[in-house]
């Protein structure tokens, strides 16, 4: 019997490997190779529209950390990226958890489905379209400025949503928040749905209030989902590009929203300095690796959850 079981396991493992191979090939070609290529390019003085390049060691790394890169230093990009990430992903995690919890309270599935669809719709839109819609709304005559005047009880004040450095950063956060919250709501709903009802029933029998149930049952059992969602959201925020790029294309100042990916684009694609841009992308990769490691360490106990 034992021999037969072993054989089935081996057979399954073999098929598992067969199904995994395309994915591994995909990752190798589209992820691992570009990372290694970027690492190699970052050690050269390669320029776009140039057929040759020389090995320059760590010159590009020294440059991006010590020079102002034509008025757009990497230090400013790291600042812009971190402010954007912290300002977007923390509110997004909290808000998506709250919305998902409320949606799970809806008794009729069709209402839940409707709201899920509504929240998810912006995620389907391209970032370019999303940014274009919001640029109209952020116009001094647009909805957001009117709403700001209403909330602040002012009249005819231009809050400079696309002009002022601070407001511009908030604008990018708002666009991103609006666009991606639905995606994370869906992930949280999936996590919430996987918590067995029997646990809630037992809590109700024991006289637990909804508030108490949320803090003592829902939240601890949702830890694996929260960990996954927060890592995904953080990585996505660190890689943000199109929102900032579209606002810049719309005439806004680049400096306050010059996130690392945008600096990489301008340095590598616009200015043709591929070696320097690759060095920046390696720095971004290391930042993402570091933050993911920290977050995994912080949420390590989450894997202990069992229903």
């Amino acid at each position: 019997m034992a021999k037969k079981g072993y054989s089935i396991e081996r057979k399954q493992a073999k098929w598992g490997l067969v199904f995994t191979i395309p994915c591994l090939i995909f990752f190798a070609v589209f992820s691992f190779y570009p990372i290694i290529n970027a690492l190699f390019t970052s050690l050269t003085n390669r320029r776009a529209i140039s057929r040759t390049s020389d090995f320059v060691g760590f010159e590009n790394y020294v440059y991006i950390f010590t020079k102002d890169n034509g008025g757009f230093p990497l230090s400013n990009s790291i600042r812009a990226t971190l402010i954007f990430t912290v300002g977007t992903f923390i509110p997004m995690i909290i808000a998506s958890l709250i919305i998902a919890t409320f949606l799970m309270q809806l008794r009729k599935d069709k209402y839940r489905g409707f709201f899920q669809l509504m929240y998810y719709t912006p995620a389907v839109l391209s970032s370019v379209v999303a940014a274009s819609i919001w640029m109209i709304m952020f116009d001094p005559r647009g909805l957001v400025n009117q709403l700001s005047n209403f909330v602040m009880r002012t009249s005819g004040v231009d809050y400079n949503w696309l002009v002022d450095s601070t407001m511009l950063q908030i604008s990018t956060m708002m666009i991103y928040f609006w666009k991606y919250i639905g995606y994370f709501v869906i992930l949280f709903i999936t996590g919430l749905a996987s918590i067995p009802n029997t646990i809630y029933e037992a809590a109700t029998v024991d006289g637990s209030s909804r508030w108490h149930t949320f803090w003592k049952i829902t939240l601890p059992l949702l830890k694996p989902t929260t960990a996954m969602v927060s890592i995904m959201a953080m990585l996505q925020c660190l890689k943000t590009f199109s929102t900032q790029y579209m606002l810049y294309q719309g005439g806004s100042s680049r400096f306050p929203i010059d996130v690392i990916t945008m600096n990489i684009y301008f340095t590598g694609i616009r200015n043709g300095r591929l070696g320097r841009a690759s060095a920046m992308s390696i720095v971004l990769f290391l930042i993402m690796l570091l933050f993911t490691y920290i977050q995994l360490r912080l949420t390590r106990s989450s894997e202990d959850v069992e229903y």
Binding site: G70, G71, G251, P256
Partner: peptide
């Protein structure tokens, strides 16, 4: 093309970020 971007940054920094012209010229 890059030069145009740098001049643009100087113009936009004084118009949109209230950077003083003297400072913008030096940076540019």
């Amino acid at each position: 093309s890059e030069l145009q971007d740098l001049i643009g940054e100087a113009v936009e920094s004084v118009m949109l970020s209230s950077v003083q012209p003297e400072k913008a010229v030096q940076a540019m």
